[in-house]
Simulated scan of single mutants.
Amino acid sequence: MRQNPSFAMTDVAELRRVIDENPWVTIVSAAAGGLVASHYAVLLDDERDDLTIVGHVGRPDDALLGLGETEMLVVVQGPHGYVSPQWYGDVPAVPTWNFVSVHLSGVPEILTAEENLRVLERLVDRFEAGVGTPRGMWSAPNDADFVGRLERGTVGFRLSPSRVEAKRKLSQNRPDAVVDTIIAQLEEGATPYADPRLAGEMRRAHDAIRAGREKSS
């Protein structure tokens, strides 16, 4: 990912937030037959406070990805969306795309069966928490045999990234008034491009920029 100092993300707390809020990732590996990409949910390792993630893939995908044998890239895609030149005012302009993205690279560690089982349980609990009556991995009619087959059909991994590249391109190169207009259009504009999540990321980034300016003035 081409980096621009104005758009770089380096704060670990912010990176953890983006990963936590956007758990559906793309996993890319340079396998013997060429590049392979798979899509899975991941979680931050709850025993660490860095950018280590845990997850799993199905055994057929592991055969393609070769987890633990070579470096892999995990792409975390945050909110993103179209920005119309009309929102810049009466000035020469072209469209752009605002986005937040985190790339984590490294050679993953393969989890034991017990560790993998715990990660699978955490994943179910994480997403079932949003349902009216959560159904955990061990809830009936699931039984120990069923859960055991589930675990054996997956390969769990832990990735402590050796390289992190993160970028949030959120109109940091635009005047405050233009930024406020873009945020308003994304929050409640009457277009197909309205996206409150992207507006929230912009507001978060620009609030920090403005606070920094006030502190230094």
Rank of each mutant, 00 (worst) to 15 (best):
F99Y: 14
V147H: 13
A63I: 03
V178K: 02
D125C: 03
E214K: 12
E69N: 09
D49I: 01
E71N: 10
G68F: 04
G153D: 07
I182R: 05
Q185W: 08
N173A: 04
A31W: 00
L44R: 04
I182D: 09
P161I: 08
E214M: 12
V147S: 07
L73Y: 02
H80E: 02
P141G: 10
P23K: 15
F157P: 00
T96G: 06
D50C: 01
H56A: 15
D46C: 14
V36L: 11
P92I: 12
V28E: 02
V25E: 07
L51N: 06
L123N: 12
N4S: 11
N98T: 04
R158D: 07
H80V: 01
R122T: 11
I27H: 01
G153P: 12
Q77A: 13
G58W: 05
A41D: 13
L15T: 04
W97N: 03
P85E: 10
I110T: 09
M9E: 10
G89F: 09
A41S: 05
K167A: 03
P5T: 11
T191W: 12
F7E: 10
W97I: 04
E114C: 00
A177F: 09
A93K: 06
W138Q: 08
R168Q: 08
R203E: 09
E71S: 12
V75Q: 07
R197A: 15
R152D: 12
N4K: 03
L44C: 08
I183E: 08
R203A: 12
Q77H: 14
A8K: 13
R149L: 10
A31D: 04
G81Q: 02
P196H: 08
L64N: 12
V107E: 05
E187H: 06
E165D: 12
R197L: 11
G156R: 06
V155Q: 08
L159K: 02
G89P: 05
N142S: 11
N98G: 00
P5E: 11
R149V: 14
F127V: 14
A208V: 15
R197N: 07
T52M: 02
P60A: 08
A63R: 14
M72T: 07
A32N: 04
V83A: 09
V178D: 07
L117Q: 13
R204S: 11
V100E: 01
R135F: 04
S6N: 11
G148K: 13
T112H: 13
R17W: 06
L198I: 10
A184I: 00
G200K: 04
T96I: 00
R135H: 09
R149W: 12
V54W: 14
K169N: 07
P60E: 03
D11A: 15
V54M: 14
A177I: 14
H206Y: 00
A144M: 08
I53E: 01
H206P: 00
S84G: 06
F99W: 02
H206F: 09
E214W: 06
A13V: 15
P134G: 03
E151A: 15
A32K: 04
V54Q: 10
D143E: 14
Y40P: 05
